[in-house]
């Protein structure tokens, strides 16, 4: 279980890291703890899988990926694991999920593919299908990013 210091640390660490030589010392000072204590908690968070990483989150459009496609597939449940094994080998494919189908939405597999062009996305899709077989799929390109932020944990409203 997380104690109140842990929650304070998580709240603090979801803000922007100070751009100073000793950023963790600065954060620790703000939290009223030693840098060593902070490091120890971070290592522990990592071990528990609570902390995935510390680092930069980029704006992927800005770094050159102009065609960002969500490709959804209708793949029988018993074939999902096998298909995923192939899909995740593509470095341009960032997310691969299985989700519940609904009446209105007959697709269960979701892949996010980031390319420099729509042609490149289509090539990746046909390449994948050459290996896993043909299934129904739909490509949804993102046309507008209306919101992209990070989750704020342990805030008043959340």
């Amino acid at each position: 279980m997380l104690n109140s210091l842990d929650k304070d640390i998580i709240r603090k660490l979801q803000e922007d890291l100070p751009l100073v030589k000793e950023p963790y010392r600065k954060l620790a000072e703000d939290l009223g703890i030693s840098e060593e204590k902070l490091m120890e908690r971070l290592e522990d968070f990592k071990k528990q899988g609570i902390l995935k990483r510390v680092g930069a989150v980029l704006r992927h459009r800005k770094v050159g990926y102009k065609a960002n496609a969500m490709v959804v597939w209708d793949i029988p449940r018993e074939k999902v694991d096998q298909a995923a094994k192939v899909m995740i080998t593509y470095p341009m494919l960032s997310h691969c999920y299985e989700r519940e189908k609904t009446e209105e939405w007959p697709y269960n597999m979701y892949t996010m593919i980031h390319c420099e062009s729509t042609e490149e996305c289509k090539e990746i899709i046909s390449d994948i299908m050459n290996q896993i077989g043909k299934y129904d799929y739909t490509i949804l390109y993102s046309t507008d990013e209306l919101k992209k932020t990070s989750v704020k944990y342990f805030t008043e409203t959340n």
Partner: peptide
């Protein structure tokens, strides 16, 4: 860079 920090 959109943000520098921890990802939980």
């Amino acid at each position: 860079i959109r943000r520098m920090g921890a990802v939980f």
